[in-house]
Amino acid sequence: MIRYIVRRLLQAIPLLLIISIVVFALLQGSGDPLAMMGGRRTVRPEDRERLARILGLDQPIYIQYVYWLVGNDWVKIDTDGDGLGDTPGARKGILRGDFGSSLVIRGKPALDIILERVPNTLILMVPAEIVILLASLAIGIYSAIRQYSWVDQAVTTGSFIGYSMPIFFIALASMYLFAVNFRKWGLPYLPTVGMFDPKVGKTFGQVAIHLVLPIFSMAVISISGWSRYIRSQMLEVISQDYIRTAYAKGLSERKVLVRHALKNAAIPMVTLLGIEIPFLLGGAVVTETIFGWPGMGRLFMDHLTRSDTPVVMGILMLISFAVVICQLLTDIVYGWLDPRIRYD
């Protein structure tokens, strides 16, 4: 098993390198980071030229990539525009742990910007995933074992409604109902935006109450999809011979469902989870934007629209790395769930 893990990790190195090259190349075509530096006014050509030179944006794309990868502290930068390098570069490159400095928040390390947001995203996404997973399991299993009951029919109808609603609609509708209108009607109400009320501070109660609407919005859609998937997996498994055998041997329904049915139905779900978990790091762009949640999704969009390559590359590489690790973990979990799978 250890040899397998080491082999997979070694295989990940060229994979991450290829990902970085592709993403870097794609980002170069996504716009000029200097174009919007003037705010609502057009940037003066002299300033654009000066900043391009100092920030290294006037270099060919492969040079920019090399600087991003291994740094530029081995070359001199032309800061005064006389065509000669006069100041040593300060970047060490991602291979030496330097993600570069943000082009938007000039001088601030991209990694610092990203790490500031990671905890906020996890505060939102981890509880949301737990709520989604638990509710989906409960609903999916119940629907499967009570197939065609009125509860199953109601859940099916609800799932289709929930799944067909766009997240921005659910988010705004819930915001207007529970925050704006509840307040107008004199009912206990929820806050509209933010992670906490700055007037009160970042307390557990504040964060908890600000989590309600974003999690609700994400959960409505995700539970609708996941519960249908779990229901169909469970239906397939509980019709198998070994389940009938388990019942025939006198095992209780709970034991049959949890030990035998759910464990086998979980294999495809683990695949999906393995793909989904690393993207928790990426946050939820729409939800975070609407609710003003200071997470990674918003950070990514804010910096992508300003072509801030160091920050965007940093986020994407972190997610890529997380995908590689989670896929490895997924494969290990397969082995635990299905004894037929061996890696040695």
């Binding site: 705004l172 704006v180 935006v193 009320d197 609407i290 609710f291 003003g292 804010d302």
Partner: peptide
């Protein structure tokens, strides 16, 4: 910071 216009409207209407 309220990046979404519709959310800004809601925050103003709600008194937040």
């Amino acid at each position: 910071f309220v990046p979404d216009d519709a959310a800004q409207t809601a925050a103003l209407l709600a008194g937040d």
